[in-house]
Simulated scan of single mutants.
Amino acid sequence: MPDLSASPTLDLQLSWRGTFGRVRVFPDRVHAETSYEREGLTAVPMEQVQGWRIEPCDFDAVCVEFVTPEDTYRVLLDTSDRGVAALALQRVLGEPAPTES
């Protein structure tokens, strides 16, 4: 059972053009939430995630894509956070899925 009192090893968030995204990486799990392409702030159902990747979204943002059987959840982050996010996510979730582009 994960230690829910533990502090995240990485906590990234971005408010971008009216949307919000946050990725919190713990030693044994990832929590993410997004309002990008959503009606409101939505928690990513991490127990359903089958893969992840980081793709460019715009010149000033990247999308961390969490892929589930039913949907792809895109969490926006600043382009400068791409490298550190990739390293932290890979440590917990394994190798990223192939890019779509």
Rank of each mutant, 00 (worst) to 15 (best):
Q48E: 15
T42W: 04
L87T: 14
V23P: 05
V23R: 06
W52S: 11
D28P: 01
E100H: 07
W52T: 12
D78S: 12
R29N: 03
E47G: 08
L10K: 05
L41E: 01
V23F: 05
P56M: 08
S7D: 15
C57S: 14
I54D: 12
T99I: 13
A6F: 00
R82N: 11
C63F: 09
T79Y: 10
F59Q: 13
P96Q: 09
V67L: 14
F26T: 04
E70K: 12
D78Q: 08
L10N: 02
P98I: 05
P69F: 09
Q48A: 15
A86T: 13
D60Q: 06
C57I: 03
D58T: 08
P8C: 04
A61K: 05
V84R: 15
L87H: 10
R91I: 00
P96A: 07
V23E: 06
A61R: 06
L12H: 08
W16L: 01
F26H: 11
Q48I: 10
I54C: 12
E95T: 13
R82G: 10
V64K: 00
A85P: 10
G51S: 08
L41D: 00
R53S: 11
G40M: 12
H31L: 08
T68N: 04
V30P: 01
L10D: 05
R91H: 09
A85R: 08
L41A: 03
T79H: 08
A6H: 00
R17K: 09
Q90G: 14
T34N: 00
L89S: 11
I54M: 13
G83M: 06
E70P: 01
V75T: 10
R29S: 06
F66W: 03
V25T: 09
A86P: 04
T68Q: 07
D58H: 09
L89P: 12
G18P: 01
R17T: 03
A88V: 02
E70A: 15
P45A: 10
P69W: 06
C63V: 10
L14N: 06
D58A: 15
R24N: 03
E55R: 13
T99G: 15
E33R: 09
R38T: 07
M46H: 00
P56E: 09
P69Q: 05
G21F: 02
E95I: 02
